[in-house]
Design a protein around this nucleic acid. Structure first.
Lengths: 149, 149
DNA sequence: CTAATATCAGGACAACTGATATAT
DNA sequence: CATATATCAGTTTTCCTGATATTA
């Protein structure tokens, strides 16, 4: 049996409120920097999943996204038609088809990430002094402590 | 005609990279603290819109969300059935029906916001010293400078 | 009479469920 | 035979377009 945790201090409450606001705003501004290219949310999720986890089968992608394989199939087919994916039959298991990002898709994803990175870098450079950048660097280390453990 | 802006410094680039990562992670962790209650994205958008901008008509909501009034109508009808909204005919304009959040819905929205706020406050209190909280407070002021102007 | 609001009717698309063929 | 992958077919949901009644 645990004792209830102590209530947060007034300062912690104020900082939390301000932090929630700035996180939401920054997230939106970052998103504005790179157009999604008229892909559906499902399609975007598949591309990001393949980029981070590597090639996968239709069923594996469906499981990862909480969908049925029958629903994942047309999403993949559309992405293949757009030239973002290409499927290759698994040499060991004849049932499976392994889908990978095409080089063009990898380049396009990297481009979007670079656009966001570029906007934020320039923004930091323009609006903050070197000393303030250092302050921010230390604060980011503090923020990381909130999401680990 | 403008000269191209100077390229960002190495430090700005590193801070931008770290900041993008921590914003994404924090956003996700905050989202995990309050369940969405099985509402569709459109329904959630309508509730948040009404909360921030006050009562509105079907057409006004449709315009705000980039939808047709015919598509907005069933969304509102579903929210009314769930007890989140209640409509009242405009006394001045007999064509319009003004939809408002019910007190129960306002309480539910506030509850979700409070859950996120509570999680973050406690997390700050537990993981950071008072001095570090002060550092973070100053850093948030710096971040605000990135999104204004 | 024109403009705006709401609603009714039917179509397109994306997800679902159920069933089937093939390979392990 | 039991399991896993992929796919075919039908259904539901959600948003769309088009048309109509009512009110300003």
């Amino acid at each position: 049996m645990n004792l209830p945790p102590p209530p947060p201090s007034e300062l912690a409450f104020q900082v939390a409120d301000a932090l929630r606001g700035i996180v939401r705003t920054l997230k939106r501004r970052l998103r504005e920097q790179a157009p999604t290219g008229d892909l559906s949310p499902s399609q975007t999720a598949v591309l990001l999943r393949l980029e981070s986890d590597g090639p996968a089968t239709t069923s594996a992608l469906a499981r990862a996204e909480g969908m049925r394989p029958q629903s994942m199939a047309p999403i993949i087919a559309a992405l293949e038609r757009l030239g973002f994916l290409h499927g290759q039959p698994d040499p060991d298991d004849g049932r499976q088809t392994l889908h990978s990002l095409t080089p063009a898709c990898k380049a396009w994803l990297a481009e979007g990430r670079a656009a966001r990175q570029d906007w934020l870098s320039r923004r930091l450079q323009q609006q903050l002094s070197a000393a303030e950048l250092g302050q921010l660097e230390q604060a980011i280390a503090l923020l990381r402590r909130l999401t680990t453990d």
